[in-house]
Amino acid sequence: MPQYLLSIYQGDGGTPGPEVLDPIMENLATLNREMKAAGAWVFSAGLHPASSATVLRPRDGDVLMTDGPYTEGKEHLGGFTVIQAPDLDAALEWGGRLARAIGLLPIEVRPLADEAESCDPPGA
């Protein structure tokens, strides 16, 4: 069954207080239980702040390391869920439910390349 990445984008800045965050975490726990019961849930994770990222870039046969996120922006990837769904419409339904559970942040739904696609060299 195809898998999809549901990416949660959040604005830069501090974490909301418990009055905002606690109901969101309860909603997410409920949604994760529903995804698991439906056989859609594969994996979920939250991420540390973008400021904790290290970017590695190949440069002249070496690897250059820089602190911070890959791009400068007002939003960054804050967490994600990998689901399996029969088709994009079903994945979008789960993505919409995730957006409603969080209530504040945009969700990007993107198909994952299957193993054969991700291992083939470009143009193969």
Rank of each mutant, 00 (worst) to 15 (best):
M1A: 13
L6V: 12
L6I: 10
Y9I: 02
Q10M: 09
G14H: 15
T15L: 14
G17S: 13
V20S: 00
V20N: 03
M25T: 05
N27V: 06
L28G: 13
A29K: 14
T30R: 14
T30Y: 00
L31C: 06
E34I: 02
M35K: 02
A38Q: 06
A38H: 07
W41Q: 02
S44E: 01
S44F: 02
A45I: 01
G46C: 09
G46R: 09
H48E: 12
P49Y: 04
A50I: 02
A50G: 02
A53D: 08
V55A: 12
R57L: 03
D60P: 12
G68Y: 07
P69N: 04
P69G: 09
Y70K: 05
G73S: 11
K74I: 05
K74L: 04
E75I: 03
E75Y: 06
L77F: 01
L77V: 06
G79I: 15
T81F: 11
T81S: 07
V82P: 01
V82Q: 08
I83C: 07
I83P: 01
Q84G: 06
A85T: 07
A85V: 13
P86A: 08
D87P: 09
D87I: 06
L88M: 15
A91E: 10
L92A: 09
W94R: 05
W94V: 00
W94Y: 10
R97C: 08
R97V: 05
R97M: 02
L98K: 13
R100C: 00
R100E: 15
R100G: 03
A101C: 08
I102P: 02
I102K: 09
P106K: 00
P106H: 07
E108C: 05
E108L: 03
V109H: 00
D114C: 03
D114K: 00
E115R: 12
E117P: 00
E117T: 04
C119G: 14
